[in-house]
Each structure stands twice: as C-alpha cells, then as structure tokens.
Nucleic acid binder design. Structure first.
Lengths: 137, 137
DNA sequence: TTGAATGCAAACTGTTTGCAGTATT
DNA sequence: AATACTGCAAACAGTTTGCATTCAA
C-alpha cells in the first residue's frame, strides 16, 4: 500500500505494513461491505485485535482514501474498499448481506437542474435497494 | 389521531392526547425532517420534555405508523411524518437542511428484474441527493 | 380509578481519547 | 533511535430500560 506521497525519515501514519491493517483490507476484498464489528469478527479469536485498533484503522484508512463509509438506514456504519467505479447496493433487510450493483442512469443530472433553481448544488447521491437475499427469501 | 383500531376500556399506548406527542407531530409538519435532538430543541426551554420521553415518543409514533425513520449516511437518524407519496431528499452536507423532492422514475422496476435473477427480491429503495443549500453554497 | 405518559437515574452500545508499551523502518 | 502501531482503561454520545410519579380518559 502506498497512500502517502511524502518521504520523511519514517513512514507517516497509515503507511506501515501493519498486520491489522493488511488483514482488514484483505477482509474487505473478500466481503465487500463490513461494519467495525464484522471487521473485528473477521480475525481468528486468538489473534483478534482490540476494538480500539479497529476503529483507529478505520479512521486511518478513510483518511488515506483507501475505504469509504456507507450507511444503510439502520444506523450502522459500513465500510467498503474505495473504488472509483460508481455503484449502488442491494441490501438484505434480514441478514445484512450487501452486494454492489452497477447501472447506467442520469439521476444526478436531472435532479441537479431543478435543484439548482432552488439554489441547491448537488455534489453526490446515494441509491440503495433493500429487500431479501436468496437465503432469506 | 386514530392509529388504534381496538377499543379497550382505556386508550392503548400512543393514542392519548399528550402534549409532547402533539407538539412533536406539529413540529414535524413545520420542519420536514428532524433528529431526536432537533425534536427536543423544538420545545421552548422552560417546557422542554425529558430526552427519554422524546425517544419513547419516537418509538411510539413509529409503531403507530405516524412517522418514518430515515438515515442520511452520517449515522444520525432523522424522522419525518409518514406520507404515502413516494419521495426523495436534497440534503445539505453543511447545515443538515433537508428538503423533499418528487420525481418520476422506474429505478426499482429496472433493478428488480436483474436482482431477481440472483435470487434477490427488492422491496424498497432509498435515493438521496447531497450537496449544499442556498445558504451554505 | 386505571393505565398511559413523563421524569429521573442508571444501564447499555458504539465510538473516541489518553497514555504507556511494542514493533516497524 | 524515532515514531507508527497496539492494547488497555476510561471517557463520551446517543439511546434504552426500570421504577416511581403524574395525568388523561
């Protein structure tokens, strides 16, 4: 990982090869979207890091732009790898399964125009679909 | 308000004319979307109810289907009057201003079809637009 | 008079901060 | 050796629960 551009004597925060950090990123590669709790549970019991570390790593990864924070309406924050491909999600209301979906649309363009008339500038949007996954159906 | 169908000796929870309840509903009529904190702040200081009461009323109003819970990605839960007209929101990232918008689209229909192929049943969706309002622009 | 509504204290969950010890560069 | 990383304890914010009191019907 090379999120930092500067080159001081020592690597700045967020740039070392730390076991927890690598494991979290790897975990997010496997499971697209995870909460802090899920990220923690991803570690084997005997080498599970402290929750403080998990939270701190999340902040660090967010700061370095490696992950994004999402929120699916029930209040729990979830995290996914930063990915420049714009996408949305299918979210299971029962088990919390999350799946990215890609679709073409001009939603933002349409709304931006009318919003602008009210003096509102649209900078981004979120579009999430809720329902029940294959297992929970 | 008549959310209850039964007719016991006494009115069941959520059906009495309580000062706090009425005031909260009235407040939501004026300000479309509010958090628990905002609902509390809506009361004049000298007759502000206890936070416990606010939270309990929110649960009660949700149970009786009088309000809906929303979540705008920053973790804070907001509430709006239940309204059967499907709509979305413009949300100011700076001051938290929220404004409902109505638009025609077939988003759900399109996605439902492809999701169904993966065994996922879409039951609802959320679509929110973020940016900066007139004041914060 | 009954039971819903309210206030207060305390518990609880998720998250953050301070500080000291450990590990990477 | 310098300092990022980690763990632990404690603080913190938002929310919920238990219990006693007040109020609407």
């Amino acid at each position: 990982m090379t999120p930092c551009a500067k080159k001081p004597t020592h690597k700045p925060p967020g740039c070392r090869t730390s076991a927890v950090r690598s494991a979290m990123l790897k975990s997010l590669t496997t499971n697209h979207c995870q909460t802090a709790e899920q990220l923690m549970a991803g570690f084997p019991k005997n080498k599970r890091p402290h929750k403080t570390t998990i939270y701190r790593e999340i902040v660090c990864l967010l700061d370095n732009g490696l992950i994004h924070e999402l929120n699916f309406g029930d209040g729990r924050k979830t995290y996914e790898l930063a990915d420049n491909r714009h996408h949305h999600h299918l979210i299971c209301l029962k088990c919390g399964w999350v799946h990215p979906i890609f679709m073409q649309h001009d939603l933002e363009k349409d709304v931006s125009k009318s919003a602008k008339k009210q003096g509102f500038t649209v900078t981004k949007h979120s579009l999430e679909f809720f329902g029940y996954c294959q297992k929970c159906n």
